[in-house]
Write a protein that binds this DNA or RNA. Structure first.
Length: 468
RNA sequence: GGUGGGUUGGCCGAGAGGCGAGGCAACGGACUGCAAAUCCGUGUACACGGGUUCAAAUCCCGUACCCACCUCCA
């Protein structure tokens, strides 16, 4: 079975047919770097990271572009509030975002373009739109340039809306628009309220780019006029993606073949607003669970399903994930586990619009099979499959992306092993003498040092209790 | 007003006409000196009211409630 994806534009699951055999070009709308990222923000990144890994796993050569919006109204406003330059705020928050994504093993994109670095490309596109009669400079001398919605008959096609049915924008500042639904391609510099650093020269006077144009220009630059998949959060469908598509097509670009949108993570039934406080910021959440566990929690739900975030559910997910890790540890005791093949049921689940919940079910089924058998070779096969599946989901505990593991330090392991071995010997003697009180006391003593002892048919085994 | 999505067992979370996805929790059993880990077993879930059908959580009609977007939100 080949990959099938739900395309927002057609509202159905369709076979994925790339423009070029064996290649996939993906553009994902990243973040406006205005504040610290919270778990809601990074869900989108995790979802599209899974898409990317699955495409790569099935043999595609993937070009993955994820932008950052590093200049916009909110950045300017927040920076002004905080009394620091907007570019410093954007740069700092960009750094936070990069760290947050790395901590949940989201692969760096092929390239991460920023709006401020692509003003010439945007101006070029605006110019073309003006020439073609789809954009106009505001007649009020504001320096704004607007896209002329009425000039593009298929405006609204992405979200299935008719222009006349749209709620007239209660735009506080209609500033010379021909139609209230027209949107800004270029925003003239407001001398009295905006820093000079936030303005770039243009044929329409100094100003800065509108929001939507950056994605059209950057997608075109790095992926070409036509590319395979465009992704982002559901809220971006309108106006952002509708506008992107209208601009690009009006400029003569076919643009994206498929549109994918991930659903929200909410708290208390409400959108995770950026002003909600910091308890759900990624570093905060990672004080409670490990990055791999947070990622597992996200991957356990389908990307198009709304998730109601709760720490209880997060903790449960973490417990489930540890079961998988425990199995891998067990298998590793027989010898190194090589990454194997993904089971057919897993591939079928992933091919069906990235059915990660069903894929995770296969993961657990495979763990159970591996735990059930007494045969080390069979167990190794299961473990290899488990590692392959985890790899696709970006959850392989052995991935160096999760940082150094205790078990990686061979000298330390040997030292602890020597110390524990002596104690275990005493415990074995006590057990042989049926002095179970003493045996348990020794086990407790070891446990107090943070080391868990388990008895197996092959004898006692110790492991570091790292909260798992 | 327009557009789209949702309501599934104690909890999380899939499925989209017929076989109880999976996880967490709980209970029983096996293994163990006791544990731990693991395995086996245990559930008459699909917001409500009608309808279609041999068969409906799934399709249709209606109702209720919730959510998102409608011009700079992942």
């Amino acid at each position: 079975m080949a990959l099938r994806l739900y395309d927002t534009a057609t509202r159905e699951v369709r076979d994925f047919v790339p423009l070029e055999e064996g290649k996939a070009g993906i553009y994902v709308c990243g973040l406006t770097v205005q504040s610290e990222p919270h778990v809601g923000h990074v869900r989108s990144a995790v979802n599209f990271d899974v898409l990317r890994r699955w495409l790569a796993h099935t043999g595609y050569d993937v070009t993955f572009i994820r932008n950052v919006t590093d200049i916009d109204d909110k950045i300017l406003a927040k920076a002004a509030e905080q009394g620091r330059p907007w570019f410093n705020l954007a740069y700092a928050m960009h750094g936070e975002l990069t760290r947050a994504l790395a901590s949940i093993n989201v692969l760096p994109p092929t390239y991460e373009p920023g709006a401020t670095g692509h003003v010439p490309e945007m101006l070029e596109m605006i110019e073309r739109l003006v020439e073609r009669g789809h954009a106009y400079a505001a007649e009020d001398g504001s320096g704004d340039v607007y896209f002329d919605v009425r000039s593009w008959p298929s405006y609204g096609e992405l979200t299935g809306q008719a222009v006349d049915d749209m709620e007239p924008a209660e735009d506080a500042d209609p500033r010379g628009k021909r139609d209230p639904r027209d949107f800004a391609l270029w925003k003239g510099w407001k001398k009295d309220s905006e820093p000079e650093t936030a303005a770039w020269p243009s044929p329409y006077g100094p100003g800065r780019p509108g929001w939507h144009i950056e994605c059209s220009a950057m997608a075109g630059k790095y992926l070409g006029p036509a590319f395979d998949i465009h992704g982002g959060g559901v809220d971006l469908r309108f106006p952002h993606h509708e506008n992107e598509q209208a601009q690009s097509r009006a400029a003569g670009h076919p643009f994206a073949s498929y549109w994918l949108h991930n659903a929200w993570i909410t708290t208390a039934g409400e959108k995770m607003s950026k002003s909600l406080g910091n308890s759900l910021q990624v570093p905060k959440v990672l004080e409670r669970v490990r990055g791999v566990e947070l990622r597992f929690y996200m991957v356990s739900a389908h990307y198009r399903s709304h998730v109601e975030f709760s720490f209880e559910a997060l903790d449960e997910a973490a417990v489930g994930f540890r079961r998988i890790e425990t199995f891998l540890d067990r298998a590793a005791a027989d010898g190194p586990v090589a990454v194997g093949e993904v089971p057919a049921a897993f591939a079928a689940a992933m091919d069906d619009d990235l059915g990660t919940p069903a894929a995770v079910a296969v993961l657990f089924d495979t763990v159970r099979e591996g735990n059930r058998t007494d045969d080390a070779a069979e167990r190794a096969t299961s473990a290899g499959q488990v590692r392959a599946m985890l790899g696709v989901l970006g959850l392989d505990p052995a991935d160096p992306a999760w940082g150094p593991q205790v078990a990686d330090d061979a000298a330390l392991v040997a030292a602890v092993d020597a110390l524990v071995a002596g104690l275990l010997e005493q415990r074995a003697e006590a057990r042989a003498a049926k002095d179970f009180a003493r045996a348990d006391a020794i086990r407790d003593q070891i446990k107090a040092a943070g080391i868990v002892v388990e008895d197996t048919p092959a004898g006692p085994r110790w492991s570091v209790d790292d909260g798992r």
